[in-house]
Design a protein around this nucleic acid. Sequence first.
DNA 1: AGGAGTATAGGTATAAACCCCAATACAGAG
DNA 2: CTCTGTATTGGGGTTTATACCTATACTCCT
Lengths: 209, 209
Amino acid sequence: MDECKVYVIDDSTEVRQAIKLLMSSIGLEVIEFESADEFVNTDHDIGKLEGCILLDVRMPGMSGLALLEHLQQIKCSPPVIMISGHGDIPMAVKAVQAGAINFIEKPFNEQELLDNVHRAFKIDSIQRGKNMKIQLIKNRLNSLTSREKEVLYAVTEGQRNKAIAVILNISQSTVEAHRARVMEKMEASSLSQLMRMIIYIENSDIEPE
Amino acid sequence: MDECKVYVIDDSTEVRQAIKLLMSSIGLEVIEFESADEFVNTDHDIGKLEGCILLDVRMPGMSGLALLEHLQQIKCSPPVIMISGHGDIPMAVKAVQAGAINFIEKPFNEQELLDNVHRAFKIDSIQRGKNMKIQLIKNRLNSLTSREKEVLYAVTEGQRNKAIAVILNISQSTVEAHRARVMEKMEASSLSQLMRMIIYIENSDIEPE
DNA sequence: AGGAGTATAGGTATAAACCCCAATACAGAG
DNA sequence: CTCTGTATTGGGGTTTATACCTATACTCCT
């Protein structure tokens, strides 16, 4: 939680200043961006940011909603709290459907905003825990050779070594060798554990949230 | 899609009539309720309804939001489209966060409402497909004896038969017998398939959507 | 040319899982 | 009380999977 920062993306200098003041009152660091484009083009790995994003909807250049959708596509971004001065219901609905954790109207209640930031931090913490787990497994998967991946895939499909040998047109001994290396590289001590990893990755790939 | 109906829950007779007219113009059947309480108390299995729910927010008795949350808790309800004449952004956000697929303001655009209903039908169709799959697996799980469930649980944890025998303080032969019956009852021809079923159920239990 | 990494294959031995069978014990339902 | 379902145990044999070893061949990089 110490590393958490509040990324404020708003074209209004006053709003950014007000938020900065509010956040610093409880010891939170604020990083400002005056447009969505600036945030995107800044040299930082979005996946490694810790904290949350306060994002204005209406801005010159890329809109807040567009940035929100962009962040959801690349995944593993910090949680986003939308802020708007002239928002309407369809806009708020769209934002929440796109993954924003809340939609707050300006002028905002200070305590409400702080509460939302804290909630966002919690969500971020949980999300980063999951992302670390996913990354760990993906790193292991990447260490597999293409042949080993083929064997792994067949194994997760429930195929026996003998069947896999026929499918890949290699001998059963070779399949066994590959399979053993797969278990070793994936750090799985049982097929059940291996399946849990694979299915975890499968689900994280198709279900964004 | 043929069986799909539109469940309208709104205290205003005029609104219900207007929706009924609109829906019947494209051949959709409408079932009316003048309050959330009436919907809840009506003798129907909510999990078996097909179609979608048009739900007013402000009503005498149980509020639309309260009903929405109630529906999400028991799960497997048809998708809900919230409708409100005097809605605000916090209300809309809350509704979407609670699982409503949209939040439409009265007076509504007719085509927009129809589009939403069609989208809801698609979501419902997908959701019911998933629910059927879950129910199928749960039925198999329920056919297991308590001992078989213990063995199943240990197996999914990656335990070997020998280890399971020690844990349950029974002989390895017995474990093998239970395990064979588990595979048979679950209709799994491989451990991989069994794991997929179990993890599917695990995920559906903790992640509502 | 030599080394690392990968893919391939064979061998031997052990362990684990699967299959079919038979049998005892016990509790609850009819 | 008998019948049924469940839980338990065992044997014997087959099939799979693991573990550990060796070995060849090919490619890529140094």
